[in-house]
């Protein structure tokens, strides 16, 4: 496996995915009901590329045991076997099947990143909405606390907290979720602030609606578009942070298959000119690019920018 053929495979994969995205777009425009057809038709090819890639990742993650030829942790051969059946991508530093671990890692890494983002959103979104709706000293306390938390660089703060609580998956999810919720707080507070001052919110307050109604029925529906786009962006950041921590050996712990630590464990191969350890890293990059493409399109649509 040389670097040239590796790059060629990568290009080939991108071309195949682009063609797939083009075909899916054609089919979707015909099949979709007319209300949606226009939106789907105006979506650029990059957005379709992103959606196709995300769909493939989700399928791989959900159906990992079906696709993977071997189990996640089983040692099936000697270490660093070359490419070839039945180990299509060779074996890793302990003799585990590379392809199977790559597929299982889709489930672990993406799943954990998704869960963390979800948690960060519930936490940051709830706090942001409360702060903007209630205002006053609650807003002040939350905002100043977030200011202080954001004054420390995120990766450094995460490392400090992980030293204290110890490195395992639950702690990892909690630490990253709390640190990332500060960014979600900033955004949800800012967009909710614009809605809180609207007349219909005032009217709802005057009719005596409670806090829950105000947030769920009056404010939330009006800020979903920027929040969903932000979810995509935050997912990318969380995903990259978790991968970086796993790469440093401080994130998802062995023997769980995970893209970050797979790169770290097999990095020796790179110095011999074998690019196989780059595949997990490429998997990370491909998903982040895909999510970014979709988010770009959504932001473009919701902002109505034409430039």
């Amino acid at each position: 496996m040389t670097i040239g053929s590796f790059a060629l495979y990568g290009l080939g994969l991108i071309v195949v995915l682009t063609i797939a995205a083009w075909i899916v777009k054609r089919v979707a425009v015909v099949v979709a009901p007319s209300d949606y057809a226009y939106i789907l038709k105006t979506a650029p090819l990059t957005a379709w590329f992103g959606m196709v890639v995300i769909f493939i990742y989700v399928m791989l993650a959900v159906l990992a045991p079906v696709f993977a030829p071997f189990s996640e942790t089983a040692i099936v051969a000697s270490e660093y076997e070359p490419w070839g059946a039945p180990y299509y991508l060779g074996t890793d530093s302990l003799g585990r099947d590379m392809l199977s671990r790559l597929i299982f890692a889709a489930r672990n890494t993406v799943g954990i990143a998704f869960l963390t983002t979800l948690l960060a959103f519930f936490l940051g979104g709830a706090m942001g909405l409360l702060a903007s709706t209630l205002g006053g000293w609650i807003d002040q306390i939350f905002s100043r606390a977030v200011d202080v938390l954001m004054a420390i660089p995120q990766l450094i703060f995460a490392l400090l907290l992980l030293t204290i609580v110890g490195t395992n998956v639950v702690n990892l999810i909690l630490v990253i979720a709390v640190l990332d919720s500060t960014r979600v707080y900033r955004l949800s507070r800012a967009v909710a602030m614009n809605v809180v001052v609207m007349d219909y919110v005032e009217a709802a307050k005057l009719r005596g609606e409670g806090l829950g109604w105000l947030i769920r029925r009056e404010i939330l529906p009006n800020i979903t578009a920027p929040l969903i786009a932000e979810f995509g962006l935050r997912f990318c950041f969380v995903f990259l942070t978790i991968s970086a921590l796993s790469f440093l050996g401080l994130g998802i712990q062995p023997p769980t298959a995970d893209w970050g630590s797979m790169v770290r464990d097999n990095a020796t191969l790179i110095t011999f000119g074998d690019p196989t350890p780059l595949m997990p890293a490429a998997a990370i990059a491909l998903l982040t690019v895909a999510v970014n493409f979709v988010v770009d399109w959504m932001l473009h649509r919701s902002s109505g920018l034409k430039d």
Partner: peptide, 13 residues
């Protein structure tokens, strides 16, 4: 969108 270690290893390779 690329993780830093991906860029680094590509450059090394």
């Amino acid at each position: 969108s690329f993780p830093e270690f991906f860029v680094a290893y590509i450059l090394i390779l």
